[in-house]
Structure formats: structure tokens, C-alpha cells
Nucleic acid binder design. Structure first.
Length: 521
RNA sequence: CGGGGCGUAGCUCAGUUUGGUAGAGCGCUUGGUUCGGGACCAAGAGGCCGCAGGUUCAAAUCCUGUCGCCCCGACCA
């Protein structure tokens, strides 16, 4: 087979391979083509590039506003956690011990390294090692213990934007990296009911954000015992179906009971003068959401960014076939950009970029297609003659264009973006619905999650499976067996589900209701 | 931590079996022809072949050691 040259045999899609050919590789290629992030020299850690980071900034801005609106305040706690703090909650230690980065020294000095060469070696061993936070329950708990004395100090509603480190064995850009960015909310309450309400409220905030900003439909639910956060009494999560029909946990909200309050001594005197332990919660979303956004919306030409989170809403591409018309075209572009920048959109004004780069037209256009900018507006001499601009939507075909007057664009741009946002959600929802099935027959269940052609010699399995809504008797052993056999787990017990008694799909024992089974990231 | 693989130009890789002193495509620079589209032609810049030893007249190539990375599993936001 001869190597096809670019001119004779240009790829049909901007991303190779396509989703259908090799989904995992497609994901990596989109991350790169869209200029979201790249691998760094540091094992398992990524460099988030400007386009990817501005997506995160937009997510942060919206979420931060939602947290403030629900009464939370931001604070910042140390990156380092004394080892003894982590040891306070037994299940917590067990859950995180295997993935902690540990600081054992506090300076470097000249010496002979392990490879026998001269260089810098760690010196000044710490009396007590410091753990780089994998999550901050214990260090924040220490502060909460000081801040809470009376029922009048409650509820305490705190959020922190931070980086955390989890020494994972295998990493994938955005989905699982050694260091990642997130927010972690930590709250303390006087009563169990209030803490549970908080847990539920923040899950609703996440679901609202996922659906209305990311255009990503989610299922809200409770986790089974085996999938729970270490140390939590109950874990709630939002689960989204990616385009390969696997589930991605997008955010979690934990009801911690009094476990961490007891470990950190968060105590208060209630109105009756009785000393009580507080009830705490914690909840978080991370830069993983960028991976979720990609796998929900991106196509074989690259990223597709939902308008409400786009760093740039409109890209204006000047078309300059002849140098003599450059000035006129550029002026028209700048004029349109200035008008569009006055337009209000989702709490701010439109972000508009005129791409003045000295690149060939095709390269320039494709770079924005791959990044997923919602609207591209082309302006060339011919458009100027006809008094129009050419508008392309990223959620439509790359070559599809609509000619309209600049006035019409300025007047209609917001409804255009709104329609695009809606349409992206609708498409993702349709995909979820199409691949969610109620299954009562164990044979059908097994077939649903079994690939027709198993993976072989670099050819991945075809995309299959989805969400199975089946009854489960909540036996952890059965769940663990299922995971070993089919790689399927209970993603959640949906909150909006009804009681629907019948036989457990795994054991045949009586089961009260249906849960979501799926393969997961 | 178990199994497999790979370290050669910015990127993707060939060359290693059969040692002889470094290549391709893409990208980059310059010039030209094109150009409502990811074009073409020409000329260039760029690598002590992961690192350290050894064998040899001669090592990217053979041997030993070492470091790093990737993939599959177990673990995981």
C-alpha cells in the first residue's frame, strides 16, 4: 500500500482516525488538533493550552457564580497535608493511600545521585512527611474545627478552587491526569437533614451546569457502596453518556455524615447547650469536564464547543484574494467585530476574534473548525459587493454557509447561538435516549455489553452497549463479579427512578428498583 | 505491581536482522506560481541516533547496565 499524498488524497475528515475507526485515538487527536492541551515533560501531567484553559475559565466563572448564589464563599487551604491528618479517617486513608505524592525533604544539596553522577540530592528530611493533597477534607476539617464553636457558626459553606494530585497508574489528557484542577466544596451543618439537603442541592447545581451550559444531558443518582467516596456515608453523582456509549462521572456530591467531623473534631454547642459533632458534605467537579465536553460534542472534524462556554463565540475570517482589496475587507471585518462585541450574551458580551494571521484561507478556516468555535463569519470582496457576510455554524457541515446582511447577523446572532446550544443538547439527549434500554433478561443484558468483534491486533472493538436500566438487589459481590466479567458497573441508582419490583438481573433475587448499568471511564 | 513495546530532526517514523560514519514525510524559513480555500515548484535551516560502559580498525546498528516513555491489566474525578 503506497502512502497517499496530501494533494491527491486529502482526508475526508480533519481528524484521523474517525470515532468509528478508533474512538480512543480519535479522542487524543481531537485534544491535539483543537489545541486544548498536550503532554508535559512531567509524567502524567498535562500542559493546558490557552484554548483549553479558557474553556476551564469559563466553566469556573459560571460555576463560581452558582456557588455564590447558593450561599458559598471561596477560601484557600494548603497544598500540603501532614500525614497524620490523612490518617484520622480510616476509610479515607485506605481509599487514597495508594495514590499519594509525599514530600519527605525540604531542601537540595550537592551530592552523588542514585545513578552515581554528581548533582542535587534531597536533604533535610522532614520529621513528618507532607502529603500533596489528593482532596482536602482533612486539612479543611482542621480549620473547620477552629471556626465552629456554636450552632450560630453553622452552616459553614466553603468552596476552594485548587489543584490536586493523585498518583494514578495510567493517565489520559483531561480524563485522568496526575495533577488536575478542580473545585471542592466543603460544608458543615447542625443537622443531618440539612447536610443531606446540601448534598442534593449541589448535585442539582452540577446537573444544571452540565445540561444548560455544557449541553450535556446527565443522570442524577446515588452510588452503590462499592463506588462510594472513601469515608462518605453517601455519594451522589451526575453520569453522562459519551459518544462511545460509555458513562463518564461528571461531578460528585458526598454526604459525609459525622465521619469527618469526628475525625477532625468539628464540634458545636447546640441551642440546648449540648456538645454535638457537625454533619459535613463535600462536592467537586474537575477539568475532567473538558474531556466530557469533548466526548459529548466533538465530531470527526474536531471539537465542537457549546456557545455558552465558548472562549470565542464568533470568528471573523477575512478573505483576501487580491492584495488591493485587503484594506476594504479588513475594515469591514473590524467594523462588524466592533458591532458584535456590543451584543450582550450570557451575562457578558460576545467574544469576537478577527483572524488576521498570515495564513492561507483554508488553513485558517480549518484551524477554527478543529477548535470548535461556534460561528465562523467569512467576509470577502464578493460578499462586500452583495452586501452580505457568509455565516457557518460549527454544528452543521463544514462547507455549509448562509449569506446574510451584517445587520441581520448582529440582530440575530444571539438567537443563532441559542439555537445552536439547544440543538447540541437535543442531539446529545437523543443519543443518550437511543442507547438507553430497560433490560430484564440476563441473556439480553450480557449481549448488550458484549462486542460483536473483540479487540484484535490494534483494531479496537466496535462501539456498543450503552446504559442498561435493570433491576439490582444491591449485592456488592454480584457487582464486583459483573465488573470482572463484562467491565460493567452500576453507574448510579437514579434519583428520579420509581420503585419497580422484580428480579435482580444478576442474581435473580427480589429487587426493588432499576439502576443504571454501563461501562465507565 | 504483572504482561508487551518503544527511545533516531519540532512531529510521525524508516534505517538495526547482514556494523562502514544519518534518511523520508509533515512542520519551519526564503523565493516564485497559485489562492472564496487545508495547493504547487525550487532552495534552505534543523539530529554528537535516551544515557553509561564494553567489543571492534570502525557502533544508530552487536553485548551489558541504566533511565525514561507508551500500550494492555489491577486502581481511579
Amino acid at each position: 500500500m503506497s502512502q497517499p499524498t496530501k494533494s491527491q488524497n486529502a482526508p475526508q475528515t480533519a481528524i484521523q482516525p474517525t470515532r468509528a475507526q478508533n474512538y480512543a485515538e480519535w479522542y487524543q487527536q481531537v485534544v491535539r488538533a483543537a489545541d486544548l492541551a498536550e503532554n508535559s515533560p512531567v509524567r502524567g501531567c498535562m500542559v493546558i493550552k490557552p484554548w483549553g484553559y479558557s474553556l476551564w475559565e469559563n466553566m469556573q466563572r459560571v460555576l463560581d457564580r452558582m456557588f455564590k448564589q447558593t450561599g458559598h464563599k471561596n477560601a484557600y487551604f494548603p497544598l500540603f497535608i501532614p500525614l497524620s491528618f490523612l490518617e484520622k479517617e480510616a476509610q479515607h486513608v485506605e481509599g487514597f493511600a495508594k495514590e499519594c505524592a509525599v514530600v519527605t525533604h525540604h531542601r537540595l544539596q550537592a551530592g552523588i545521585k542514585r545513578d552515581g553522577k554528581p548533582g542535587l540530592i534531597p536533604a533535610g528530611e522532614l520529621d513528618e512527611p507532607l502529603v500533596v493533597r489528593p482532596t482536602s477534607e482533612t486539612i479543611i476539617g482542621a480549620s473547620f474545627a477552629k471556626w465552629v464553636q456554636s450552632y450560630r457558626d453553622l452552616p459553614l459553606l466553603i468552596n476552594q478552587w485548587a489543584n490536586v494530585v493523585r498518583w494514578e497508574m495510567r493517565t489520559r489528557l483531561f480524563l485522568r491526569t496526575t495533577e488536575f484542577l478542580w473545585q471542592e466544596g466543603h460544608t458543615a451543618h447542625a443537622t443531618e437533614a440539612e447536610a443531606q439537603e446540601e448534598t442534593r442541592k449541589m448535585l442539582d447545581v452540577y446537573a444544571d451546569f452540565a445540561e444548560n451550559w455544557m449541553a450535556m444531558p446527565v443522570v442524577k443518582g446515588r452510588k452503590t457502596e462499592g463506588e462510594r467516596f472513601p469515608g462518605a456515608v453517601e455519594t451522589l453523582s451526575i453520569e453522562a453518556m459519551m459518544q462511545d456509549r460509555k458513562a463518564l462521572q461528571g461531578g460528585t456530591s458526598h454526604f459525609l455524615g459525622q465521619n469527618f467531623a469526628k475525625a477532625s473534631e468539628i464540634k458545636f454547642l447546640d441551642q440546648a447547650g449540648i456538645l454535638q459533632h457537625a454533619w459535613t458534605t463535600s462536592w467537586g467537579v474537575s477539568t475532567r469536564l473538558i474531556g466530557a465536553l469533548l466526548m459529548t460534542h466533538a465530531d470527526d472534524d474536531g471539537m465542537v464547543v457549546p456557545p455558552r462556554l465558548a472562549p470565542t463565540h464568533v470568528v471573523i475570517l477575512p478573505i483576501l484574494p487580491k492584495p488591493e482589496c485587503a484594506a476594504v475587507v479588513m475594515e469591514a471585518c473590524e467594523k462588524l467585530a466592533a458591532r458584535l462585541r456590543e451584543v450582550s450574551y450570557v451575562g457578558g458580551t460576545l467574544e469576537v476574534e478577527v483572524d488576521r494571521r498570515d495564513l492561507r484561507g483554508g488553513d485558517k478556516m480549518w484551524s477554527w473548525v478543529k477548535k470548535g468555535a461556534p460561528l465562523r463569519v467569512e467576509i470577502g470582496p464578493r460578499d462586500l459587493e452583495q452586501g452580505v457576510v457568509s455565516v457557518s455554524r460549527r454544528d452543521r457541515g463544514v462547507k455549509e454557509r448562509t449569506a446574510m446582511s451584517a445587520d441581520a447577523l448582529v440582530a440575530g446572532v444571539v438567537s443563532l447561538l441559542d439555537e445552536m446550544q439547544q440543538s447540541m443538547f437535543a442531539k446529545a439527549k437523543a443519543h443518550e435516549v437511543a442507547n438507553t434500554r430497560s433490560i430484564d433478561d440476563p441473556k439480553e443484558f450480557r449481549a448488550f455489553f458484549t462486542a460483536l468483534k473483540p479487540e484484535s491486533e490494534g483494531v479496537p472493538t466496535e462501539i456498543h452497549g450503552g446504559f442498561a436500566l435493570s433491576r439490582f438487589a444491591m449485592d456488592p459481590m454480584e457487582e464486583s463479579k459483573l465488573k470482572d466479567e463484562l467491565g460493567v458497573t452500576v453507574r448510579c441508582i437514579p434519583l428520579d427512578g420509581q420503585d419497580d419490583p422484580g428480579q435482580c438481573i444478576l442474581s435473580g433475587k427480589p429487587a426493588k428498583r432499576r439502576v443504571v448499568f454501563a461501562k465507565a471511564y
